[in-house]
Design a protein around this nucleic acid. Sequence first.
DNA 1: TAAACATATGAACATATATTCATGTGATAA
DNA 2: TTATCACATGAATATATGTTCATATGTTTA
Lengths: 122, 122
Amino acid sequence: MDRNSDCIESCSVNVIHEDVVNKVKSGMPDEELFYDLSDLFKVFGDTSRIKIIYALFESEMCVCDLAALFNMSQSAVSHQLRVLKQARLVKYRRDGKVVYYSLDDEHVKEILDKGLAHVEEK
Amino acid sequence: MDRNSDCIESCSVNVIHEDVVNKVKSGMPDEELFYDLSDLFKVFGDTSRIKIIYALFESEMCVCDLAALFNMSQSAVSHQLRVLKQARLVKYRRDGKVVYYSLDDEHVKEILDKGLAHVEEK
DNA sequence: TAAACATATGAACATATATTCATGTGATAA
DNA sequence: TTATCACATGAATATATGTTCATATGTTTA
């Protein structure tokens, strides 16, 4: 864990602007935040999950219908819904044998819309 | 490419709510959009790149300083900057031997802030 | 021109991850 | 109770991806 603590030497990386590096370093958030953020965006970084989310924007849906809609296997959909569930992005309700999924976060739409703005620009 | 076009049968996936599926399907955006969006979020889905972006929020920085700041190799930083460049998220200017990178998009901050709101919630 | 420096990049390697396959679980209906 | 249906899940596999290593490129300086 600390075997790279002297890496500024061993990596032959030289600080060119020590003042800038120190200033920026002092403004950096906690290391854990970077992991949490990248973990969240990793969830949006897959076509299948983006598709599922867009479908759930329109309506709550069951696993089988999502599979049929996107020509995916039931298993693949279920696995991806699990990822979305773990990220607290979707919730579900059971009605007999059928499980209905829906979005469980007011930020999702905003995040995707901001991403859309970047993608569609120029 | 079309070998799965009859997948509703071959995958043994049955549509339970055909009306819902058809309604949602008609509201789906172009397939290409899903790829563009997931490609963009994939960029945010890595700790190293998130770190670099956060550093560039504070100040433009050269490759060497970024490497020193995060204890990364120069090569790793350079590779990740290339990804950010291809996603049109950063720009650069050359001053002699040194290349300075900075953010090239007004959406980046907004996207990460929305993600932050989700991460910090509850 | 040669040497040194900052950066870029291709190949190799290790790890992460998405899908499939087989099977398990929970609920309904015959 | 047994069969069937909708869904969940573990293991295996194939692919994607991040880092390292070696080296190339471009710039400055001796």
